[in-house]
Structure formats: C-alpha cells, structure tokens
Nucleic acid binder design. Structure first.
Lengths: 246, 246
DNA sequence: CGCGCGTTTGAATACTATCAAGTTCCGTGG
DNA sequence: CCACGGAACTTGATAGTATTCAAACGCGCG
C-alpha cells in the first residue's frame, strides 16, 4: 500500500522541537497506518525520518527467516540517518495514524554542515540512538526470560515516560516484543504470566499493563543469585566496585 | 595501578586523521598495559578517548556478577563521548602498550560547536559507534552458539580488516568473546572446536585463527533451515523480499 | 455471527549453563 | 635455562531452561 507524502505546510501545526526553519521547509509529512512500511530493507536511503506522532519498529529479516526488531521509535526520535546508500533495516508503523516527518538526505546533510542548530539536533538524536541501542544490548545481555522481559518493561516504562502513573501502554504486539528481546513469543507470554501471577504486574488490556511492584520487577531483572566471577577482573579495580552504577 | 598521562607533544608523531590541530593541542596521550582501566564505571566522564594503537574493551558488571562486554575498540575509534556526567561502562585495555589519546570533554564539546572539522569527525565517529552497536545486536539476535560465534568471527574479520589474508588475530580472551556474545566460555570453546573439526577455521595460535571456508562460516552464521514465519509480515512487503540485504 | 489473528497454556525436545577436571600457554623466579 | 605456578583454554557430564510443536482461548473486524 502506497502512502501519500504531503507538503509540510499542509499539515496542522506541529511542535518542531529544536529543528531549524530551513530544515522544516525541506520536510514532507507522512501519515501511515499500523503495518505500513516507511521504508524497506534494500531500498536506497534518500531521507531522514522523524516521528511526529505514533510509533515505529525498525527491523530486519535474517536469511533464515527470523525477524529481529532492532529498535522502537517514539515521537521526536530521528531514524534512517545512519544508513548510507542502502537501508539495512525496514521501518514499519506500529500505531494507527502514525505521523512521520521526512527530510531529504541531501538537504539535511547540507544543513548539518552549515547550520549549528541542525548540527546540535543531529548530535543529540545520534546520542539518543546510541543510548537506545545500548539499552537493548543490556537487555539481551541478561540470561533468563524473566530477567529480559522485566528489563524490557522497566526500560519501556521509562521511555514511554509513564507520567506518574504506573500504567504503561505497549503499542507493539507480543511478537514484536519477542523479536526485540530475541526470544520465542511463547516464552515472553510465560514470563508475563509469571509476573502477573506473582502480582508484579497486572494486565489491564492485552496491550496495556500496570506495574504493581516495581522493586520486584527490578529484582527479577537482575536474575537469580550471583554466580562466582570467572574472568579476571580489571587489574586495578580493587579500589572501586564498579558494580551497579545506577 | 595508576598510569601516566603525558603531554601530547611528548609522544612520537601520530597520524591524527581528521582531527583538527586545536583538538590535538588539548590532548594527552596514555600508555597502558593489558588489563589497565582507562576509566571505570561510576567515575565522572570528563574526557573523550581515541585509540591510537592497541585495543580496548568496553564493559559493565551487572549487579548479579555477570560481566558484559558491550564493544571492542580499535585504532581511530572514539569512545567515552556518549556518556554524560558519569561513565556507565568501564574501558579496559586489551593489548599490551595500548596508546590512547584523551581529550578534555569541555574543550572537545566547545570545538564541536565551532570547528566544522571536529564536528564532522564526531559525526563520523558516532555513526561508526552506532554501526558497531547494531552489528553486535545482530549477533545477539542469532539463536544457537554456532551462529553467534560464526557471526562474531565474520564481523571481526571484516573490522580487523584482514587485508587479503584470511588470518585474523583476536586481541581478546575467550572470556571477553563469551561476554561479548553473551554465552558461557565453554560454549564459545565448543563452537570453535566444532568449526575447527569441520575445517571451517584453523586455530593457528590460541588467539589467532584462519578462516578456511568462508562460505561454510556464512552458512553457520545463518543457522539451520528456515523456520516458518509466525509473525505477520509487513502489510506491503509483498513486492520485495526484504531478505538478506548484503 | 464467524473468521482470523493475536495471545495464552501445555508437553516433549533440544540446547546451553553449570559444575568438574584435565591441558596448554606464559610469565616469574630459581 | 629450566622449573614452577597461575591463568587461560579445552573437554566431559549433568541439570535447568528455552524452543518447538500443538492446541485452546479471546478479541477485533469484516
């Protein structure tokens, strides 16, 4: 299904946080439904994309048929800028009526060179991207389904900014979560069930849950009891623990 | 063990690729031995670091005692720039006599704002960092020890730029590899043994191996036979496969 | 209302982590 | 130079966990 690219000016006023006027003049805005591809793996990467509203998953299909969700994007997140030449991933809308601003790469890269505001903006977005990638890396580093799912929930609760409320909404399916944390769907379900049975979380709707016991969730994230260290710790790390920096 | 920070000028001439003169004037150079910490988790992050020679691992100790290696750094790689305020990881030298250039964060961030050359350099380094993080994410996405280790070896072969020669050297220990791919050391060893027995690789020394059959390694990386797709593929991805973008 | 997709639960299997022990490698000190 | 000792590396056996196959359930949407 093809989508319509509208001129930026045709869209209702949108808060262009930290983006220059010149940048926004070059933009177009896309509206897409859940499941629509913003771009596909293998296509030429001619644009940068910024989410205005909704949510997007960035994913890839391995040759063995396994899908991997590399990142979830939320409003104000920039994506597509790190893939030169050809897209190495696909980007697909999660929420219905997702709005995305699209910037021609040529213009964007020129502005980055000459407009300090755009340069700063890109720097911030790139660092955010790095933070998200590291967060997922830390999730995948955990062994055990409970630990991974718990870590994901805590990360997502923080990202979706669950403002004061402990209710978090999951725009993505269980399959998306499973492919994000690299486990089978069934395993994710079972982990959620365990958490629910222990009353650590409560499933309001299928895609909305409430964190009842955040401490228990933190504990679950850390897994079981400490195994003995088997690798040589740093030569000079005796003075500081280096553990559990918050 | 404390290390000596020498003035940049005291060190033999080093190729400052793509870094401005002003940037290098603010730099100091550190020489450290294998195992030395460049910085530790929890410390204030006051500098940027660029590897001049040698190799470094970026890692973190979970509260449960598990170590996780988040990245391996090679010459010209910049690191430490994305961690504001406090370091969230530790950085430790892998190779003996590793040389590292250190830039005061305050100066570096000022130069990034006003020196286009430095700005470009940071952008490129940040993108490289993103690429490495994504590469590891793809490795961790694979299920099966053989697939993960094979993927790691192929990635590393490409990074270490095994120029024409299929012999690649591993500056890191098996423990480092295990913590990088998130598996037990024994599992990594067994995977290497299987690859050796099938004559896909040959172990020259403990930390140097030769890729004998790159195609077999690629196949091992892809895992077994394709499982059926269980998640809903993209709504409009019928026209293109989206699989196996090289 | 019913079909399909997403979700959840249930067994059997396959795999990896773990524990344990042996071997090689390398730096250190005699 | 050689012997020693510790760390890294490798191999084996067992137990625990996730994946897989299978099937039921709920929910949204036509």
């Amino acid at each position: 299904m093809m989508v319509d690219w509208a001129s930026s000016s045709e869209i209702v006023r949108i808060p262009w946080n930290r983006t220059s006027a010149a940048m926004e003049r070059a933009a177009a805005v896309l509206r897409c439904e859940a499941g629509d591809s913003v771009y596909r793996c293998g296509e030429a990467s001619l644009y940068w994309y910024r989410i205005v509203n909704g949510a997007v998953r960035k994913c890839m299909l391995s040759a063995d048929g396994h899908r991997q969700v590399v990142d979830f994007l939320l409003p104000e997140n920039l994506f597509g800028f790190a893939e030169h030449g050809m897209h190495r991933f696909s980007a697909e809308a999660l929420s219905p009526s997702t709005l995305i601003a699209r910037y021609p790469r040529r213009d964007a890269e020129r502005l980055v060179e000459c407009d300090p505001q755009v340069s700063r903006w890109l720097r911030r977005q790139a660092l955010d991207s790095i933070s998200r990638l590291q967060a997922r890396a830390l999730i995948l580093g955990r062994t055990g389904a409970l630990a991974r799912v718990s870590a994901f929930l805590l990360d997502w609760a923080e990202r979706s900014g669950s403002a004061r409320s402990d209710v978090i909404s999951l725009p993505m399916s269980r399959y998306d979560i499973a492919d994000y944390v690299c486990m089978a769907v069934e395993t994710v379900c079972r982990a959620l069930t365990v958490l629910r049975e222990h009353q650590v979380i409560a499933l309001c709707a299928t895609r909305s849950l409430r964190i009842c016991d955040r401490c228990a969730l933190e504990r679950a994230k850390e897994g079981g009891q400490p195994p003995p260290l088997r690798h040589n710790p740093s030569r000079d790390s005796a003075s500081r623990s280096g553990v559990g920096c918050p």
